[in-house]
Amino acid sequence: MKGFLEYVPGDSVLHRMNPVAKLVCALFISVACFCTSSFMLLALILIIDFALAASCKMTRQAAQLAKAVAIFSVVLAVIALLTTPVGTELVQLPWGYIGTGSIAAAALVLMRLVACAVPLFLVMYITKLNDLANSMVKILHVPYKYAFTFTSAVHFIPVFMNDMAGIMEAQTARGVEFDGGFAKKVRLMVPLCVPLLVSSVRKTNSAAIAAEVRGFNVRTRQSGFKAYPFSARDVVALLACVCILALAIATNYVPIP
């Protein structure tokens, strides 16, 4: 999982967009996914997601993400399937039935989560974390402390994953067998949380000290050197996303399949 959520340099239009605009656009699209139950619109959003990913050469990452999110949402989809007795009855259950409508509901859950997650993660891949944090501080007036917490948290994900891989490697070398069933794997991994925790605490502590000695506390909103102006491109993108959101809300009143 090397490079998970790590910035991939590029020069596409999306790469050059204002970081805050990107984030807000992604949020609009995600919210739109939850405002609608229309298959057509969700499919359209998915197409837009992948078109955007393709425009910045992130198709592979987007596909990986979509797959990962889909796997996680299967549980939710199954719950939806079992608890939404709608449509023509197909399978009788002790508490209801699975109908054609239940299948539609399950599919809707899957599509919605994938369509909603892809743009949010995409932002991480095409925006430098520092830019994202600094622009949030400058434009949205988010206190630097919180922005920093956010960036460090994201920054540490690959570091911890790397650590965990290293720890598992060390234990494998001592004879622990991680290959095997999922339950066995989890049981073996639990004790390894100790070394992971120890190394995390050590790392966090030194990161805090490093920030402190470099004047973390005296930093203000004006400290950042780089300016993050909005351009026409950003405004257009924002408007487009507002339209998508409006469309999503409209589908609740105007029936579309």
Partner: peptide, 23 residues
């Protein structure tokens, strides 16, 4: 498998903290 090899080859990693995991 590495676990089979572990009986033949002992391996000390550079970072002891990755190896130590007991109380």
């Amino acid at each position: 498998r590495t676990s089979e090899l572990a009986a033949k080859v002992g391996f000390l990693f550079q970072n002891p903290d990755r190896q130590i995991c007991c109380n």
